[in-house]
Amino acid sequence: MDKKRIIELLDQLSPILAGKEESIGKELTEKLQSALLVAKEEVASKEGVALANSLSGFVQMISKASLPGANLRFTDQERPVWEEFKALTEQARADGQRGFQLFH
Rank of each mutant, 00 (worst) to 15 (best):
Val81Leu: 01
Val59Ala: 11
Arg98Gln: 15
Leu55Pro: 01
Asp76Ser: 14
Arg73Asn: 13
Ala18Glu: 01
Ile6Gln: 09
Ser14His: 13
Thr75His: 14
Lys31Ser: 15
Ala35Ser: 08
Asn53Phe: 04
Glu90Ser: 05
Pro68Val: 12
Ile16Lys: 00
Thr89Asp: 06
Gly48Met: 05
Gln77Cys: 09
Lys40Met: 10
Lys3Phe: 04
Gln97Ser: 13
Glu84Val: 01
Glu30Ala: 12
Ala52Trp: 00
Gln97Tyr: 14
Gln97Val: 14
Phe85Val: 02
Gln12Arg: 08
Lys40Ile: 05
Ser14Gln: 14
Gly99Met: 08
Ser56Ile: 07
Phe74Lys: 01
Leu72Gly: 08
Ala92Glu: 06
Leu9Asp: 03
Lys4Leu: 03
Glu78Ser: 09
Glu21Ile: 05
Gly99Glu: 13
Asn71Cys: 08
Ser66Asp: 07
Ala18Gln: 01
Lys26Val: 15
Pro15Met: 08
Ser66Arg: 05
Ala50Asn: 08
Leu28Gln: 01
Phe85Met: 10
Glu27Cys: 00
Ala70Pro: 12
Gln33Lys: 14
Glu27Trp: 13
Arg93Phe: 15
Glu42Ala: 09
Glu22Pro: 10
Arg79Gln: 05
Asp76Pro: 04
Ser54Tyr: 11
Ala44Thr: 14
Lys3His: 00
Ile24Glu: 06
Phe85Pro: 03
Gln101Ile: 15
Gly48Leu: 06
Leu55Ser: 10
Leu51His: 05
Asp76Lys: 14
Val59Cys: 06
Leu102Val: 12
Ile16Ser: 02
Ala50Cys: 08
Ala50Trp: 11
Gln91Lys: 10
Leu36Pro: 06
Gln60Ile: 07
Arg93Tyr: 14
Lys20Arg: 13
Val43Arg: 02
Pro15Leu: 05
Pro15Arg: 03
Gly69Ile: 02
Leu72Thr: 02
Lys20Met: 12
Val49Asn: 09
Thr29Asn: 00
Lys3Leu: 06
Leu9Tyr: 12
Glu83Gln: 10
Trp82Thr: 07
Val43Thr: 06
Ile62Phe: 04
Ala52Phe: 03
Ile62Glu: 08
Thr75Met: 07
Phe74Ala: 03
Arg79Ser: 05
